[in-house]
């Protein structure tokens, strides 16, 4: 029997983890470029912190990511792709151990039936070696790809330990954006929030405002990020920013307590606050471009 994905997640002990994010401006996407656009969905998975140990926070640290992989494999409809938005592994000061954790993570997610999987680093993966071990395992830390008329941009704001994007990558972003139309649907993936969510807890990107300035002229932009281990929705102008849950431990709401610390495990609600995100890209308003031809086939 094929079960509904929500039921499956409940059975897997990760109840209530899926929600659909409607991308802002999505109803406008059908016009213009999106002759290639079709309805689809993808998953955002984040902050699996493979290698973390702490039974008070997650007594199933070695099993949670595997449960999530099984849950994704049990989905009735497969996502077009999966994006991991960083902190794949928990940080370690030992370079060898970092590579070992990245390899173990890679082995676990290789069990995903969906093979179109993209990765980006978090500061736990890349902050101590400027992304060297991550690049060995997964390749570039910032890149773009296109899917069914949507332009996806992966911005690395963690490999620089100063939590900055850096001038070189900002220039790269500017160059890429200039190739897009102003109404191109754009989804940006980052690990840290680009805006100042809560700087007291280091929940920001030092030069994130520069990236937002570059994105602002574009009318259909959404930013999906991780880092804060909880859902959070915020607008900077017309740009929506959505943080995702993590897959190891939740963190408290911004500023809700004096110090940032993982939320303790709740035996009565195991896996609460952990999960992954489904993002549906739905084209709602179909518009038609009509052209007339004469009998000789010439456009008139």
């Amino acid at each position: 029997m094929k079960i509904d994905r929500r039921d499956f997640l409940k059975l897997a002990g990760i109840g209530g983890v899926v929600f659909a994010s409607a991308l802002t401006g999505i109803d406008r996407w059908a016009y213009g470029a999106t002759s290639k656009a079709r309805d689809f969905y993808f998953l955002q998975m984040s902050d699996s912190h493979w290698g973390f140990q702490g039974t008070a926070v997650n007594p199933d640290a070695a099993g949670t990511l595997k449960k999530a992989v099984a849950a994704v494999n049990g989905l009735r409809w497969k996502p077009d792709f999966i994006m991991f938005t960083g902190d794949l592994t928990h940080t370690t000061d030992d370079d060898k151990e970092r590579r070992k954790r990245l390899a173990e993570f890679k082995g676990i997610v290789s069990a995903l039936k969906v093979k179109n999987v993209h990765f980006m680093p978090g500061e736990h993966d890349a902050g101590l070696d400027e992304g060297a071990a991550f690049r060995e395992a997964f390749g570039k830390t910032h890149y773009t790809f296109d899917h069914k008329g949507i332009h996806f941009i992966v911005v690395d704001n963690v490999s620089d330990p100063t939590s900055s994007i850096g001038d070189a990558q900002l220039q790269w972003l500017d160059t890429d954006l200039k190739k897009q139309r102003k109404d191109t649907p754009i989804v940006v993936f980052t690990h840290r929030p680009l805006f100042d969510l809560y700087p007291d807890w280091d929940w920001h990107t030092r030069d994130g405002a520069k990236a937002i300035d570059l994105l602002t002229p574009y009318t259909n932009v959404v930013v999906l990020y991780g880092h804060i281990h909880q859902r959070n929705d915020f607008m900077t102008g017309h740009i929506a920013h959505h943080a995702a849950q993590g897959l190891m431990y939740p963190l408290p709401a911004p500023g809700s307590q004096p110090k940032k610390a993982p939320v303790p495990w709740d035996p009565a609600n195991p896996y609460r606050g952990l999960g992954f995100r489904e993002v549906k890209a739905a084209v709602k308003n179909v518009q038609y471009a009509i052209a007339e031809y004469n009998v000789m086939g010439a456009k008139i």
């Binding site: 940080t91 370690t92 939590s163 030092r206």
Partner: peptide
């Protein structure tokens, strides 16, 4: 006014306050 280390420095970084 709390302060913190904002250059990622390792496993105890988040407690460097």
């Amino acid at each position: 006014f709390p302060f913190h280390c904002d250059n990622f420095c390792g496993s105890g970084h988040e407690g460097m306050t």
